[in-house]
Design a protein around this nucleic acid. Structure first.
Lengths: 338, 338
DNA sequence: CTGAAAGCGCTAACAA
DNA sequence: TTGTTAGCGCTTTCAG
């Protein structure tokens, strides 16, 4: 026999399907005679009954799924976020549908379309969403959304982002405490909100501490990649500006610095200290282990899921946004200047 | 107006919903007058009609989803696999529902239960599934499955696994070619099929090439972890057995070796060469960059998804199993013995 | 080639 | 407290 339906349970328990439905649903169980309920539940168990959420969804217009829109699961940034999301979705009876957009606006659009047709109840969006109009349109159509890692400006969507400014501040303070006065910044692309926020935070952290605020100490990388980081550091070095430490826009950019160190025979940390950003896995295995700012990715995911679940429960509730605190992880790539 | 239904389209096109359904479904479009079909399609487009897979699923008993059962998305092994899976699922109109089991048999059982109630059409299983009976039961109940990274013995389920034996062979050959004669093996836990297969392959590769086949050269690690790898190497070293190279059960174990090298002032590769297994991300950033065996994780995922899709299309087709070839990535941790 | 009718499994009024 | 009825959006016989 195939998996039993509600009808089978009802028949076996000698009640009407509607009664069985009420008995089996904790929310409506109160409407049913306790004995009957018990009996129905027992029968359901013995039959191995499993409710069919699809059928339920058809009726209630709730699918019990949410869409997770990420650029690329292969980017080490995202697995912990997704894990955090799943961890709160699951106990709530929800499942996440993951799509990878590779940051291609066309795919993004198509994938979101897909998700919507699958009747997801909301979207957790971790992509850059270059196609800003899409965001606005989704909002207009009443699609529930939470943005991760990115605060959409000019549009009222709940978001959950790391407190990048304070993170940069942490890095600068750490270096200043070690005695560095001339600290460089290899910024990420300024079109990305992260790149911009961090670069701005860097300048103000430098100024706040009265360190050398020299525009030549900032170099903008064209991508968030090792290659771009290497290019950036080379430019900085070739410019002849003096500096004893660099705050990298993220860990990948810091990794690019390592390449340049090897290539030019520069010793880290004795000649140049480096601080990364993100705390990717295995950074502690590098020589030297990379000092970096840790982002609580999993919590970010968890928080995002909570926000979305809240929005689903009460769509009218105003959009909250959360800023998550970061922490400094001191390893071997930073030391006092010599 | 809410998202339009098939009825809306039919009304607007002046046809019966059934006709609209036929026109919109490529598979049944032939049953309909070409002109009518065109008209319906046009109307559907202009209305922004999106079919509701849930409703369709209710009727056809197909959900368009498959379950992905993995231990922990946070383990760098799995993201590429999942990505590979998604990449073939998506164009086929399927979505993957991911669950993390943390290798807890109870959770695994519950999660699979969950997936089944969500009417997944099949399961891609990447966990150890310690609870072997569960596997057998699922088979018995006709659940379509594909195993990843693990060949279930004694049970007829399609699987897609890396060709570990040849991988180990590759590593041993590489070291032998460099001139090593006494090669050690830090095996992964022998209760895991991977650990066992690799350890066996090691012995036979050694014998095949006429190298020193000394049981003292093999040490079994209790986990697939750095810590266990470090412990293993220390044991090997303390035993006093001579060796100039080690084949690690996986990259994490190799990383553990790096720790011991640092701790005992051993130079790699001049004193001891190391080969890892897996080619995790960022291995090229280590000092020295780790030579390792690369597993085509993404292809594994893609292949697994294809297998499952095939099984869904034709459940009667006999279980195929695929062995994927590995490759050697030579980096800086291997050199001729001195 | 198209329409009518029924039903997938479940839930939500409404009535009894 | 329980049963009746209807219907979510779609597909699929079966007629016409």
């Amino acid at each position: 026999m195939q998996t039993p339906t509600l009808r089978d349970v009802a028949d076996a328990a000698g009640v009407h399907p509607a009664t069985a439905s009420r008995a089996l649903n904790p929310a409506t169980r109160g409407l049913v005679n306790a004995d009957t309920a018990r009996r129905v539940i027992k029968v359901a168990e013995s039959l191995g009954y499993r409710p069919n959420p699809i059928a339920r969804g058809l009726k209630t217009a709730k699918s019990g799924t949410v869409g997770l829109v990420i650029p690329d699961l292969t980017n080490p940034l995202f697995p912990p976020i997704v894990r955090g999301i799943e961890d709160v979705l699951e106990p709530a009876g929800y499942s996440g549908l993951i799509v990878n957009t590779d940051n291609d606006p066309g795919r993004e659009r198509a994938q979101i379309e897909q998700l919507r047709s699958r009747q997801v109840e909301g979207l957790i969006i971790a992509t850059a969403l270059l196609d800003h109009p899409l965001l606005a349109q989704l909002r207009r159509e009443g699609v529930l959304m939470v943005m991760v890692n990115r605060r959409p400006d000019g549009i009222d969507v709940p978001s959950i982002t790391p407190d990048d400014a304070t993170g940069v501040e942490l890095a600068v303070r750490h270096l200043a405490d070690l005695g560095h006065r001339r600290i460089a910044h290899l910024a990420g692309p300024l079109q990305t909100s992260t790149g911009l926020v961090r670069a701005r935070a860097f300048r103000s952290a430098i100024r706040d501490r009265g360190l050398d605020d020299d525009p030549d100490l900032v170099e903008v990388c064209t991508y968030w990649s090792e290659e771009a980081g290497a290019v950036g550091l080379r430019t900085l070095l070739d410019r002849g500006t003096e500096f004893t430490a660099v705050v990298a826009g993220n860990d990948l950019i810091a990794l690019g610095c390592y390449d340049v160190f090897a290539e030019r025979g520069i010793d880290c940390p004795s000649e140049i200290s480096v601080v990364g950003f993100n705390d990717m896995p295995f950074l502690d295995k590098l020589r030297p282990p990379l000092t970096t700012i840790a982002i609580p990715h999993q919590q970010i995911g968890a928080e995002a899921a909570r926000l979305l679940l809240d929005a689903i429960a009460d769509p009218a509730r105003p959009a909250r946004s959360v800023l998550l605190p970061l922490s400094l992880v001191v390893r071997g790539s930073t030391a006092p200047p010599r």
